[in-house]
Simulated scan of single mutants.
Amino acid sequence: MATLLTSLQNGRIKNILKLHKRRQRDAQQQTVVEGVREAGRALQCGIIPHEAYICPELITTEEATAIWQKLQSLEKNGQLTLFTITPELFAKVAYRGQSGGILLIIPYLDNSLATLSLKPSPLLLIIDGGEKPGNLGAILRTADAAGVDAVIVTTQPDHSGTDIYNPNVVRASLGALFSLPVIVAEQTPLLKWLRQHQVQIGVLTPDGERPYSKMNLQGSLALVLGSEAFGVNAQWLAEADFRLQIPMRGIVDSLNLSVATAVVVFEAVRQRQQAGAKTSI
């Protein structure tokens, strides 16, 4: 039976507000998922929330009703704690508007290089220093659509870097954060892991040797892209097996990171599909 919460001073409500900050998310190893689509995809991917908050007055669609029923079933089985809250309270705790009356508290995902199982000729995507959560979310959407095997986000030894659990990442990814392995790793052990698994490293840079469409993007490959402001760091450039570029025909000298990612990733997919078609003839 769901517990009704009505006070902004309630400890659980205060904790939701704390989770809007990265320091608290990292300390508690959990984050907030808002929205009907995002919550539905988290549940679809087998993620069991620690807590769920429902505003009945805002549940207006069949999809939202189905999610509420699923959460009630999980609560009945003792798998989560379910609360109902008022519209006024939901407006206070929601990270963004138009969340459809559903808010989940989910644990951090248990993804790491040690647990990543690679299929033959994997296509990996490495984001080095991507600074904008919205960009990372859009990149995850692309990776999911293209069938990328994993997205790896580099971090510093002090764990600084793009926060994959920022609510804006969850929102911009449309739930793709839950559907594919997304791993945070430091650069040095990541490079060692790539070499151990015989994965080639292709770095996208304005100084690339050849256009991306002229490079062989088949086989075991990790595509590395950096931030729009600074690009990839020097160690990636030094370790690259090859460097590729996106030719720029106009006066601008770079693309948005998520756009550049989509361009290169879908070229890799095209090449792999074409090679597979030739093999099957």
Rank of each mutant, 00 (worst) to 15 (best):
residue 12 R to Y: 10
residue 13 I to E: 10
residue 18 K to E: 08
residue 30 Q to S: 11
residue 37 R to K: 08
residue 41 R to P: 00
residue 41 R to H: 08
residue 43 L to H: 13
residue 50 H to Y: 15
residue 51 E to M: 00
residue 55 C to W: 07
residue 67 I to N: 13
residue 73 S to W: 02
residue 73 S to Y: 02
residue 84 T to M: 02
residue 88 E to R: 04
residue 89 L to N: 08
residue 106 I to G: 09
residue 114 A to G: 11
residue 117 S to D: 06
residue 118 L to P: 09
residue 128 D to N: 12
residue 129 G to Y: 03
residue 135 N to V: 03
residue 137 G to K: 14
residue 139 I to F: 05
residue 142 T to V: 14
residue 145 A to D: 04
residue 147 G to M: 04
residue 158 D to P: 10
residue 158 D to S: 14
residue 159 H to S: 10
residue 159 H to V: 06
residue 164 I to K: 11
residue 165 Y to L: 06
residue 165 Y to K: 08
residue 169 V to T: 10
residue 174 L to I: 09
residue 175 G to A: 06
residue 182 V to I: 11
residue 185 A to Q: 02
residue 191 L to W: 00
residue 195 R to I: 13
residue 200 Q to P: 06
residue 201 I to C: 04
residue 207 D to I: 00
residue 210 R to E: 15
residue 210 R to I: 15
residue 216 N to C: 03
residue 232 V to Q: 11
residue 235 Q to L: 14
residue 237 L to G: 04
residue 238 A to E: 14
residue 240 A to Y: 03
residue 241 D to Y: 01
residue 243 R to L: 03
residue 245 Q to M: 14
residue 260 A to R: 10
residue 261 T to Q: 05
residue 261 T to I: 07
residue 267 E to I: 02
residue 270 R to N: 12
residue 271 Q to G: 01
residue 274 Q to A: 15
